[in-house]
Simulated assay, not measured.
Amino acid sequence: MMMGIANVSSPEVFVLLGFSAWPSLEPILFLLVLGFYVLSVLGNGIIIVVSRVDVHLHTPMYFFLANLSFLDISFTTSIVPQFLVNLWGPQKTISYGGCVVQFYISHWLGATECVLLAVMSYDRYAAVCRPLHYTVIMHPQLCLGLAFVSWLAGLTTSMVGSTLTMLLPLCGNNHIDHFFCEMPLIMQLACVDTSLNEVEMYLASFIFVVLPLGLILASYGHIAWAVLKIKSAEGQRKAFNTCSSHVAVVSLLYGSIIFMYLQPTKSNSHEQGKFIALFYTVVTPTLNPLIYTLRNKDVKSALRHIVLENCCGFAGKWGQI
């Protein structure tokens, strides 16, 4: 019965207002977002290829990093192409089906990333605090299991939360004041009580945002204590470099989330929220591979080796012609 109500009252299209309040800004945003999207796909794609090709990077850290890169590519691809279409043309619409797919996928991948970052912090804890037992603790079966649980947990919360949202009757309301279909904004369009949806959303936020952050902070609390007990400055520097990239990525993601939700409830706070959302959906996935490559000697060495090997191979073939 509920599904029938939802189908009758669901609009054929949604209007994504996005940044239409600043029409002169849209062409600039189009170029910036397109540039960041291309860099994000290239950068994260390189991380995936390098992690697979170079045998020296067949370690738990780079296995999880490849998962994070694939997740970032998928997340931005679920949002950015439609956003670019809306920035380029006068139409700011997305089909009902497209909107449903977008908030299912973005919810899934967003939750997965929070869990995956917590898993990566545990990996860094094992590397720094239990170095002699690291290979035994982080064995391949455990790594596969943790990655699988991360993706499955994100999918589960998306299926529950997004389905409850999709079943809400909207009564013809179809204007979303954002540049993509986000679950809380769809809930605001509903013409019925959404208390159950709000409880589910707050519970999911605690499980998939607050709890992983707590695990990350606990892991790095133990890491900081272990680093302080290292007597040599060189040992402390190596331990710090082991974790610095992951700390930077976690800070970017959770910094954006915390800044967004701690904003005062002013009339312009929602507009500011759009720019913050633009940062974590477009900019952060581009910065992640840069952080891991610029601060990581192993990745830079692997990249250099692959490039030189391919160049030498190409030169050898060219010389034979």
Rank of each mutant, 00 (worst) to 15 (best):
N174M: 10
V53G: 03
L167I: 06
I257G: 02
S150M: 08
P285L: 11
E271L: 06
F206R: 01
S195Q: 11
L57S: 04
N174S: 11
M159W: 09
I257W: 05
H133V: 11
L87S: 00
V250S: 08
Q263Y: 11
E200I: 01
I321W: 13
T135M: 04
D123H: 08
T281N: 13
P90L: 13
A21N: 08
C99H: 11
N67W: 12
W318G: 00
G214H: 04
V41W: 02
I137S: 10
K297C: 04
V192K: 11
F279G: 13
C129M: 10
V210S: 12
V299G: 09
F208V: 07
C312A: 10
L29Y: 03
V227H: 00
W108Y: 09
S219Q: 07
M187H: 06
G18H: 11
G45D: 07
Y202E: 10
N173L: 01
L17G: 00
Q141G: 00
A6C: 12
V199D: 11
R52A: 15
P169T: 08
S267E: 14
G221H: 11
D298E: 15
V250M: 07
S232W: 04
V33C: 05
L290Y: 08
F75T: 14
A153I: 13
I73M: 13
I306W: 14
L87H: 03
P27D: 09
I321T: 01
A111D: 15
F314L: 12
F83P: 03
N268E: 05
S232H: 03
P60V: 00
I105D: 01
L117N: 07
M1Y: 10
K231N: 06
F30M: 11
M1D: 08
W88C: 05
C114L: 02
L308F: 08
S74M: 14
Y96A: 12
G221N: 09
V55F: 08
G161K: 00
K300M: 15
N288M: 14
F206E: 09
F64E: 08
I137E: 10
V307I: 15
S205H: 02
R304F: 04
S301G: 12
S20A: 12
Y261T: 15
P11E: 13
F64M: 14
K297A: 15
G313E: 05
L65T: 06
Q102G: 03
T265L: 15
